[in-house]
């Protein structure tokens, strides 16, 4: 019995290894792909190639919001559709009536609460820094927004969700900020196209820097400060939308209760 199990196990592992060995040629990227990576790395911030560069030293953000920007737009749409679906499912399950729940004794101890009071502004500062430097350093709008959303999450755990609501951080307001963020992302995506339309020149949706056949584009620098054209706006609006969206989702999760 024991020998049979062992044999089976060894056979399984060996056949899996054999399959991987043969499949490796198809799974592992071929050296030709490296030229593509090299192209991104060379062009992402290169003033000597004005029609190819994105003017962003952070290649990941350049790829995510410029080289394959349309893909990211739909990813964002999927994320927010999921959020909307979650809110729609919870629509009858929560009520925002903080008055009857208002209590200062709830939540964790005064020690945790005081530390939360000090660290929450610091968390938001770090998140904003990650988001607003997305075109310069690793990070970006989504990461920054998710970091900012940690602060309301911690406040919900240490105080209560009603503490947030009595401080006027309601789900309606979060919905508003999230919508502003989404509208901003949409407008940024078509901004160069509209500029081109107004100027009567050829321009594309999701265009960032001027191209050889489409000379319109957003500036890569403003007064010598690198903003990488649309990338800065994408990161800013994505940060607002993600922070508000996550806050709203956390609040709704904690609010779910029975109807009276």
């Amino acid at each position: 019995m024991k020998l049979a199990e062992l044999t089976l196990l060894v056979t399984l592992i060996l056949s899996l290894a054999l399959m991987l060995t043969f499949a490796y040629n198809y799974l592992a990227p071929t050296p030709e792909v490296r030229n593509l990576a090299l192209f991104y790395l060379i062009t992402t911030y290169n003033p000597q190639l004005p029609y190819y560069t994105v003017n962003s030293p952070e290649a990941v953000t350049a790829i995510v919001w410029d080289y394959r920007g349309l893909d990211t737009l739909f990813e964002t749409a999927v994320f927010y559709l999921a959020l909307i679906a979650g809110l729609a499912l919870a629509r009858r399950l929560y009520r925002e009536n903080p008055v009857s729940f208002l209590s200062t004794n709830g939540g964790l101890s005064i020690i945790v609460k005081t530390v939360t009071k000090i660290t929450s502004p610091m968390i938001i500062a770090v998140g904003a820094s990650i988001g607003l430097h997305g075109h310069l350093t690793p990070g970006g709008g989504f990461q920054g927004g998710a970091t900012i959303a940690v602060a309301p999450m911690v406040i919900i755990i240490t105080f209560s969700v009603f503490y947030l609501l009595t401080r006027k951080v309601t789900t309606e307001k979060m919905l508003l900020i999230r919508s502003i963020g989404l509208i901003g992302i949409g407008l940024t995506a078509i901004s160069v196209f509209i500029i081109g339309l107004a100027a009567g020149r050829l321009a594309f949706v999701f265009q960032n820097m001027p191209k050889a056949n489409a000379p319109m584009g957003l500036p890569g620098q403003v007064n010598g400060v690198l903003i990488s054209g649309t990338l800065w706006f994408f990161n800013l609006f994505e940060m607002l939308a993600v922070a508000a969206g996550f806050t709203m989702a956390f609040a709704v999760l904690m609010l779910a209760g029975k109807e009276r």
């Binding site: 500062a125 904003a128 400060v225």
Partner: peptide, 16 residues
């Protein structure tokens, strides 16, 4: 407090 944390975390003090 927020400004201090922001600048320290960013690690740079350019105009931006």
């Amino acid at each position: 407090l927020t400004f201090m944390v922001y600048i320290i975390f960013t690690g740079s003090s350019s105009v931006y």
